[in-house]
């Protein structure tokens, strides 16, 4: 049977009771004993991609009782082969950082503080702001009389942090509204 490094680890980690030593050609006992003590034992493994540079290293997230308990490089991904840089190795602390924004925050004009609001409240008000801006400022014809249907007074900036699907609907939304000022990290 063909066993690559990753399948070996998986078999070893899950204590592959049905395998005989002859099948693998090595003794699993010490590996299994060690794995039993790790914080990742019994954890669900989920493959993700590092959110920083475009090498896009694969990372395995280990989840236990709904909580992320550890992350490590994915040894199967042919590009990073398990390695990660300092940022990639910081996925656990990135997820658990106490600096994370917790709730939608609203800052009223001329106010000196943030107020907590619900998502629905925020989205209702954002939609209203966009509509008012668009209804007032949409340019249907330019000075020459050409149809242009563009909204110059509203913009979108960002982001390469978004996935492909998010980018696709962001673009569709902006062009649908008539937005022409649109840019992101690709230009810097």
């Amino acid at each position: 049977m063909k066993i690559d490094r990753r399948s070996f680890m998986k078999l070893a980690g899950s204590g592959a009771a049905c395998l005989t030593l002859g099948q693998l050609g090595v003794s699993l006992t010490p590996v299994r004993a060690y794995a039993g003590d790790l914080k990742i034992s019994g954890a669900k493994e989920v493959v993700t991609v590092c959110p920083f540079c475009s090498v896009s290293c694969h990372i395995i997230g280990y989840v236990k009782e709904g909580k992320l308990v550890s992350t490590e490089g994915d040894p199967d991904y042919p590009i990073n082969e398990g390695s990660l840089c300092a940022k990639g190795a910081a996925m656990l602390t990135m997820t658990t950082s106490h600096h994370r924004l917790q709730k939608p925050l609203y800052r009223a004009p001329y106010s000196d503080k943030w107020e907590e609001k619900s998502w629905d409240w925020m989205l209702d008000r954002i939609a209203r702001r966009i509509k008012d801006t668009r209804d007032k400022d949409l340019i249907l014809k330019n000075a020459k009389g050409d149809t242009v249907n563009r909204l110059e007074s509203m913009f979108l900036l960002g982001t390469s942090h978004a996935g492909n699907e998010e980018c696709a609907i962001a673009h569709q939304a902006m062009r649908g509204l008539g937005v022409v000022h649109m840019d992101h990290q690709a230009r810097i």
Partner: peptide
């Protein structure tokens, strides 16, 4: 091009650009 940003290839393909 060693593209820097996390999904800057995809975000360029899907054109978050004017």
């Amino acid at each position: 091009a060693l593209r820097g940003e996390p999904n800057v290839q995809g975000s360029t393909d899907h054109a978050l650009l004017y």
